[in-house]
Design a protein around this nucleic acid. Structure first.
Length: 348
RNA sequence: GGAAAGGUGGCAGAGCGGCCGAAUGCGGCGGUUUCGAAAACCGCUAGUGUCGAAAGGCACUCGGGGGUUCGAAUCCCCCCCUUUCCGCCA
């Protein structure tokens, strides 16, 4: 008997290990495709700015304005980091504040301030582990990992709990730094602050009912799009094909903002429904009343998340889109109240 | 994480074993010229440490650290950084 128990334990562990590396299947509506080339442009908003001069890339504009310092950041931490200074640092802070205020005041989210270090189990709850261990920063002497996105602590907040159906949807927003090893990042698309090991992001997360999760995803996406629209930044919506959809996602829309200095689209948000994939791992359930009025059986919630938005690429897009011939940058109107009324960033 | 090319004075850029602390161009500074300016022409112009009242001297520095050599910016090894291609992502 004991031997059988032991055998069962081993087999269960093997089964579990296998299940943990299985991806979430995509929704039927997701276009079939092999890789990013097969993604579908689902919409485009705004008009790309035109210039009477040759627009510069942010890695020229930022340092010239004295608001971005790549060289000293490298001195402090190696490649893949940036120091924001003066108006640059304040602009980043303004974006974070305005994003959070918009989500909480206009879109009904509850703001969270969460730990940046989490356990391996928490990482497993949202699917970062075991598959993406090599992308995470780990602590040497403690079993804690630095979060690669606020999605991890926020989605796991109610792990193991059974929520009341009446509470759903639970909508959270949080600002955190995100730490990513980006093993091997180099080349085009990585210059300047396009991709760094540490960046700030405001995330939005929903815990919702299965029957509404897809339309909720579209609502969530709309919240992220609203920010770009208010900033006056042209963007497009990409529906990822099956081959490009992430490990745990069942359906993902990317928002890509226009980089006027490099003539490129930059991903600033990725909005996904994980259906019950994360909920199963994190044991995240809700209970609805049964047909007979008695409490029903617990069911897994559906989890959604999206960036709203990632900071560095918003900064890039703002600097490049609003640059002037003299190298100064006009501040988008919605941010001015957060910058003490400043209308223009110029070299001091 | 893989592959390639690179890192030289404020900037650009040559030099690839001794003639190199380093051509040339731009910029900067001073001068000639001019009523003044521009242009042109002439001269000066790397950094740090240290000594000196100053003029100037000395030492170290061609991404960093080792090595080869009588001698290294130049050759070899390791590391860091930058750019580009692949991959992965916000």
């Amino acid at each position: 008997m004991a031997a059988l128990d032991q055998q069962r334990e081993v087999l269960e562990r093997q089964l579990n290990d296998t299940l943990l590396v299985l991806p979430n299947p995509c929704l039927a509506s997701v276009p079939k495709g092999k890789d990013a080339a097969d993604n579908v442009v689902a919409g485009e908003w705004g008009v790309k700015p035109t210039f009477a001069f040759t627009p510069k890339a942010h890695w020229d504009l930022g340092p010239a304005l004295g608001i971005m310092d790549f060289e000293r950041a490298t001195k402090l931490s190696g490649s893949g980091f940036v120091v924001l200074r003066g108006a640059g640092a304040r602009l980043a802070r303004a974006l974070v504040s305005w994003f959070l205020d918009t989500h909480t005041q206009r879109h009904g989210y509850t703001e969270l301030a969460v730990p940046y270090l989490v356990t391996a189990q928490t990482m497993q709850g949202t699917g970062q582990l075991p598959k993406f261990a090599d992308q995470l920063y780990a602590c040497k002497d403690d079993p804690l990992l630095l979060i690669p996105t606020a999605e991890v602590p926020v989605t796991n907040l109610h792990a193991g709990e059974i929520l009341d159906a009446a509470e759903l949807p639970v909508k959270y927003t949080a600002h955190t730094p995100c730490f990513r090893r980006e093993a091997g990042a180099a080349g085009i698309g990585t210059r300047g602050m396009t991709r760094v090991h540490q960046f700030d992001k405001v995330e939005v997360v929903w815990l919702t009912k299965p029957e509404s999760s897809y339309t909720d995803l579209l609502t969530l996406r709309g919240h992220a799009e609203w920010l770009l629209q208010q900033l006056g930044l042209p963007y497009r919506v990409l529906q990822l094909c099956t081959g490009d959809t992430g490990f745990g996602s069942a359906c993902t829309f990317d928002l890509e903002v226009w980089s006027a200095g490099t003539n490129n689209w930059l991903e600033v948000s990725s909005c996904s429904t994980f259906t019950d994939f994360q909920a199963r791992r994190a044991n995240l359930r809700f209970r609805a009343p049964g047909a007979d009025g008695k409490p029903g059986k617990p069911q897994f919630v559906h989890t959604l998340n999206g960036s709203g938005l990632a900071l560095p690429r918003c900064l890039i897009a703002i600097l490049e889109a609003y640059q002037q011939a003299d190298g100064s940058v006009i501040v988008p109107e919605v941010l001015r109240p957060y910058l003490g009324g400043t209308e223009r960033i110029a070299k001091l």
